[in-house]
Design a protein around this nucleic acid. Sequence first.
DNA 1: GTGGTCTAGACCACG
DNA 2: GTGGTCTAGACCACG
Lengths: 123, 123, 123, 123
Amino acid sequence: MYEFDPNIPIYLQIVNGIKREIVSGARQPGDRLPSVREQAESLAVNPNTVQRAYQELEREGVCDTRRGTGSYISERDGLITALRDEMARALRRAYAEGMRALGFTDEEILSALRAELDGGRAT
Amino acid sequence: MYEFDPNIPIYLQIVNGIKREIVSGARQPGDRLPSVREQAESLAVNPNTVQRAYQELEREGVCDTRRGTGSYISERDGLITALRDEMARALRRAYAEGMRALGFTDEEILSALRAELDGGRAT
Amino acid sequence: MYEFDPNIPIYLQIVNGIKREIVSGARQPGDRLPSVREQAESLAVNPNTVQRAYQELEREGVCDTRRGTGSYISERDGLITALRDEMARALRRAYAEGMRALGFTDEEILSALRAELDGGRAT
Amino acid sequence: MYEFDPNIPIYLQIVNGIKREIVSGARQPGDRLPSVREQAESLAVNPNTVQRAYQELEREGVCDTRRGTGSYISERDGLITALRDEMARALRRAYAEGMRALGFTDEEILSALRAELDGGRAT
DNA sequence: GTGGTCTAGACCACG
DNA sequence: GTGGTCTAGACCACG
C-alpha cells in the first residue's frame, strides 16, 4: 500500500506518482487512468482528493478528462520527454544544492552518491 | 529573502534551514538563535511559526530553550555529525530512489549529477 | 461543428439551438426533427442527451413526439412569435441589466452595441 | 438575498458577481474580500463553494490570497479596465450574436434595446 | 480567526 | 458507471 508523507498534500503526491508512472513507462500516452472512484479505493483516500489530483494533471496538460468517460494520458508530442527532464532536473538540483548548502564539496557529493548506488544494501 | 514552498509547512522549512546552518558551520553549538521575534521579522513570518520551529528543534535535541534567555544550539557530542549524516542521507536517497523510479540507470543517475555539478552556471 | 459551453447543461444548449432555428426559419412548424440518433451523431453527443433535449422541448410545447414516428415542431398558433419574443427579451435584458450592473450608462450601453454591430468584422 | 441560476455552477456565479462589484466600484483594488466563512454565510452556500470561487479569482489574477489573512482584490495596473472591457464585450456579443441568430436585423437589435432601456416599466 | 486540505457522501449531467 | 458540483464538517498551519 501507498504511504503518504503527511507534510505534503496528498493530491500532489498522487500527481507526482502518476507522472512517475508515465515517465517509467508503467502508463502510456492514451491510457485511461483508473476512474476517480477506483483510484480512491486503491489508494485508500477520498474520491475528492483523487479528483483534485486529476484536475491538476489536466491543468498541466498531462491528462485529458472527458466527462462520463474518464481521464486519459495526453498524447501530445514530447510529453514523456518533458516530464522526464523536468522531474529529473528537480531531483538532481535538490540533491546538488542541498548538499552544497550543507558544505559538501562536489567530489563528496559525487562519491556519496556512488556509495548509495552501489550499496543499496548499506541502507 | 527566503522563499517558502507553499506546499510544505513553513515551520518545517525553518527547522531544516537552521539544521543546514548548523551543519555548514554558519551556526555553532552554544550559539544563541535569534529571538522568536527577530527571526520572525527577518523571515517575514508570524512569531508563532518561528516558535513552533524552535519547539521542534528542541524536541529533536538540536536546541535548548531557556526561559527568558533564548534558544541555544545544543552542545551535545556528535550533534553536527549526526545532523550532517542524516540530512545528507535523506538528500542522497531522495535523488537515487527518485531517479530509479523514473527508470534511469545508475550510470545515468551519476552522469546527470556530474553535468549538474559542472554546469552550476548553466541553470 | 457545435461547440458546447462546459458550464451549461448540454441538453439545454441543444434546446436553445433548436428554438433559434425555429425562430430564424431554419426549421418550420410541422417539420420533423432529426431522429435522436442522427442528431446525436451530428452533434457528437450521447443519444440520451438529445433525448432529454427533445423531452424538454415537448414539455414546453415546442415539439410533439409521436412514438415510432419522431418529433415534430408544433403547429400551434403563435409558436414562432412567442419563442421569438421570449428569446429576444431574455437576450436584451441580459445585456441591459448586465451592463447596468457594471455601472454603464444607458447611452454607453447603446453606443457600445452600435460599435459592435457596425464592426462585426473587427472581432 | 442572492438567487443562483441552478444551471450554472454557483462558484462561477460568485466569481462573476465579485467581478461585477469590482467593475462597478462597489469593491476596490486592495480591498479585502469577506472571509470564506462570512461570504458563505451571507450567500447561504457552503464555505467550500466560496473557496472555489476565490481560487478561481486568484487563478485569473483578480485576487491575491494570503493564508491566515484573507483574499484581497489585486492592485495590478489596468485590472478594472481589463475586467470591464472583457465583461462588457461578452455581454454585447451575446446580445448581438444571439439576436442575429434569431434573424433580427441590426436595426431591430438596436431599437429593441432602446425600448428596453427606456421602458424599465414595460417589463 | 483565516485559509488549505481532506473526508464522507449526495445529486446531477452525461456516456 | 463516470466525472462535476455541492454540502457538511473535521483538522491543521498560520496570523
